[in-house]
Simulated scan of single mutants.
Amino acid sequence: MSTFVDPPRQLAWRHQGLREGFEVVFTEPRWTIEGATTAVEERAAFAVQYAIDLTPDWVTRGARVASFGREVHLLADGDGHWHVDGVPDPALDGVFDVDLESSAFTNAFPVHRLALAVGESADAPAAWVRRDTLAVQRLEQRYTRLPDDPQGRSRFDYWSPDLACELVYDEFGLVLDYPGIAVRAPV
């Protein structure tokens, strides 16, 4: 089972490959995550700002995501039921994580919450927020814990309908390398 230490107060990822840009994240006050991504993808610039409320078990309780005059509010009850902009969204029933298309950080949520042992797999559907329209939809995902790499870092096989890859995490349970998308930047 993965045991991670508390993350630092500030983090950053350099987006590369699919998009070029940066994501910065601040983890104080504890359990409210604030961040922003600015990048260029397919010759179009975008910026997304967010605040995500988590429980100490890394279950998403709420999120505010904004981009150039558009904003979406998500509220979760912790039992797998969601409201999007105040309206119940039954398509998200059974979801415990938010996943922002613009963020490498949000891949930490299911890894922490599930605490998988090597060889274990779990489905981790997410409330996925598009970077361009801020539309929210259910994203099916699956994480499988792999043996640690030679440096002792946690590895996971990640699957969603549009992507399959291996993700490497640091001692904080944060993605170090999201192939073709982002790498952790020193802060």
Rank of each mutant, 00 (worst) to 15 (best):
V187Q: 13
G94K: 03
Q151V: 15
I52L: 12
H112S: 06
V187G: 13
F22K: 02
F105N: 01
R113H: 14
N107V: 05
L74Q: 00
R131T: 11
D85C: 09
R113D: 07
P125L: 11
R19G: 03
A127Q: 02
R61S: 10
F96L: 14
A66Y: 10
P110F: 13
Y158G: 00
A117F: 02
D157Q: 11
A185E: 14
E41T: 15
R184E: 03
V183Y: 01
D177I: 12
S121N: 11
D99G: 04
P161I: 09
P7G: 03
R19Y: 02
P150E: 12
E28P: 00
P161N: 12
G119T: 08
S2Y: 09
L146H: 13
R142P: 06
L134V: 06
L139N: 03
A108N: 05
R61Q: 07
A117Q: 11
R113K: 13
R14S: 09
Y178N: 06
P90K: 10
F156A: 01
P125R: 03
V25D: 02
W58Q: 05
D162V: 12
W128T: 08
G69H: 10
S160Y: 06
E166H: 07
A115S: 11
P186A: 02
L174W: 03
R142N: 11
P110K: 14
R19K: 04
G35T: 09
L114C: 02
T3Q: 14
F26I: 04
F4W: 11
V118A: 12
V48R: 00
I33S: 04
L167V: 09
L114H: 00
V25K: 02
W82F: 12
S67C: 05
A45R: 10
L54T: 00
T32M: 12
R43F: 15
D6G: 10
D89L: 15
I52F: 13
R9Q: 13
R9V: 07
R19A: 06
S154I: 05
W128P: 01
D177T: 15
G21I: 06
R64Y: 08
G17H: 05
Q137W: 13
D89S: 13
W58P: 02
V129N: 06
G180W: 01
V118S: 14
L116K: 08
A108E: 03
A122H: 07
R43I: 13
Q141C: 07
G35P: 01
T38G: 06
V24I: 05
P29T: 08
F156P: 00
S67Q: 09
Q151P: 12
F109I: 10
Q137G: 14
R9S: 12
T3V: 08
L18G: 07
G119L: 01
G152R: 14
P88F: 03
L163A: 10
E140G: 04
P29D: 04
V111W: 06
D53M: 05
A47G: 09
A63M: 03
V72N: 04
W82T: 01
V84H: 00
T27P: 00
F46D: 08
E20G: 14
D85N: 12
T133M: 10
D77V: 15
